[in-house]
């Protein structure tokens, strides 16, 4: 088992492709998922602005979004991806399905973090005359910050996994490299190095996430 030295530039390129797929999707997913999570929290029965009908719709959307296997989701979204990016192949195109998968995933995590903010605190804010948007921006989100950072960490790591799946259908990245060289060509050395890079990325993200969460947590 020897490593072909020409694999290093490929590995570097694949790493960049993976990051290019994952980071924009994670940021977009965090933004939209947080909004959806807040919306779920507000409209749920007993929330600040209960709306049972809307809540049931949002809740169903999140459940459906989360139950789609990612590989199926990618295929289903090809028309949307073509519409937005112009093509359904390549790392940039993968950002679309990755973001769509990220939003409901994150919304659920955000909803959980927001639920940990004690009801007494939001009621106190309401009694002090806070508007609903003030409660969201000045109470709920800042109080849930450690949980939100944790959710972001989990999201990035999940997307690293999803991006490998995206690689299987033409998105490039580390997953693609591992499958093409490692699996199809029986190149165990390249496969091992590629998986090691993925593993290091996951470790790095988890370490950074834990650090950020710890520093942001004053509870």
């Amino acid at each position: 088992m020897t490593l072909d030295p020409t694999v290093w530039p490929l590995l570097w390129k694949a790493t960049l492709e993976t990051l290019w797929m994952v980071l924009p999707s994670a940021l977009l997913g965090q933004l939209l998922g947080t909004a959806l999570g807040v919306w779920l929290t507000l409209t749920r029965p007993g929330g600040l602005t209960p709306n049972p009908a809307l809540f049931r719709v949002l809740d169903a959307v999140v459940n459906i979004g989360r139950s789609f296997p990612f590989i199926i989701l990618m295929i289903v979204l090809i028309p949307l991806t073509r519409l937005l990016v112009g093509t359904s192949i390549g790392s940039t195109a993968a950002i679309v399905p990755l973001t769509v998968a990220a939003v409901p995933f994150l919304a659920r995590l955000v909803e959980g973090s927001l639920r940990e903010v004690p009801a007494g605190v939001t009621e106190a804010a309401r009694a002090m005359g806070a508007t609903t948007s003030q409660i969201v921006t000045k109470v709920l989100l800042p109080e849930a910050l450690p949980g939100l950072l944790h959710a972001f960490t989990v999201l990035v790591i999940s997307l690293l996994g999803y991006s490998a799946v995206a690689g299987a259908i033409g998105a490039g990245g580390l997953g693609d490299l591992a499958i093409r060289y490692g699996y199809h060509r029986f190149d165990t050395a390249t496969m091992t190095v590629t998986v090691a890079v993925l593993l290091l990325l996951v470790q790095l993200v988890q370490w950074l996430g834990d650090r950020a969460e710890h520093r942001a947590d004053h509870r």
Partner: peptide
Amino acid sequence: GLVFQHFNLLAQR
């Protein structure tokens, strides 16, 4: 002005 049994302070402030 309201004072609560469980204080209801914001932990992150």
